[in-house]
Design a protein around this nucleic acid. Structure first.
Lengths: 151, 151
DNA sequence: GTTTTTGCAAACCATTTGCAGGGTC
DNA sequence: GACCCTGCAAATGGTTTGCAAAAAC
């Protein structure tokens, strides 16, 4: 998703309505383009005086998830976060320091092949998969404590 | 993990103690070898009259996670489940019908390569990744409603 | 004997829900 | 004008925590 309009279109395609609160949520998301939690959005909504309730934040995120405009991911810590995405590619590298997330689509031939191998090896019929990659983004590497002090 | 002894060893290596409740948890896990939730273990502990408390179940699972003997996964639904694993290979196919999980180690050359590609393409330093594959296991395929009725 | 672990119950936290009022198509 | 959506606050459900008693080393 790049603009609130995209959300509006997706909503109307689904017979749903574009509303003030939903647009506000979309705008908050678009300003971030990294990962974010429901809590953060709620805080921002409050500090900006947008007057959007907790429930609406969660409901909007869930809706956006169903529309494939955001993806909900589970951090290794067990926390939930959401990130913007385009309906097509569905893998992300997530920075463990700052939370920035980048999608990678690349020539995604290897993974499907691998999944087929897995299917053959295990006998499962494969329906879905999730690949999440964690690391440190270029900016955080540059700003890292320079002496290798990892603490 | 194949036996409670493995847990005992890992514990003592870490300067921790093998106790009755921990052994009992280990035994419950070993009897399942698919995926399970903390809640299920608690229920089993109760129905067997083992007298192991909620807190101990959670604490043991967390501990086993740190020892790399179980892995905590997040189902697409957002629920948490745990599954036994060996410290080496860390990918699983999970059956969405019965919850069985199987590990696949196979010639795992493709994924590391791919991660390097991702690192190059995105500039991230990659530290960790999670790949979870969901599908229907052989048994459930065999026992599926035979007429293709997916309901 | 010292230190870790346990069980209980209460605390916690993120997320969900019921419902009456307000907004959208 | 009918139906969808929102906000609030209370309910929920899974997970964590404080503490005194019990177990392991």
């Amino acid at each position: 998703m790049q603009t609130p309009q995209e959300m509006a279109q997706a909503l109307s395609r689904a017979g749903l309505r574009m509303t003030g609160p939903r647009r506000a949520v979309a705008e908050m998301l678009l300003e971030r383009d990294g990962q974010f939690t429901a809590e953060e959005l709620l805080a921002e909504s409050r500090s900006r005086g947008l007057g959007i309730g907790r429930a609406t934040i969660f409901r909007s995120l869930e809706l956006l998830g169903r529309l494939n405009l955001v993806e909900r991911i589970d951090l290794p810590s067990g926390e939930h976060a959401y990130l913007l995405c385009e309906p097509e590619h569905h893998h992300h590298v997530i920075c463990s320091r700052c939370g920035r997330a980048d999608a990678f689509a690349m020539e995604d031939r290897a993974l499907p092949e691998r999944l087929e191998q897995i299917a053959r090896a295990t006998g499962y019929r494969i329906d879905a998969h999730r690949l999440e990659v964690y690391g440190v983004c270029p900016d955080c590497q540059a700003n890292a404590h320079p002496m290798g002090s990892d603490a």
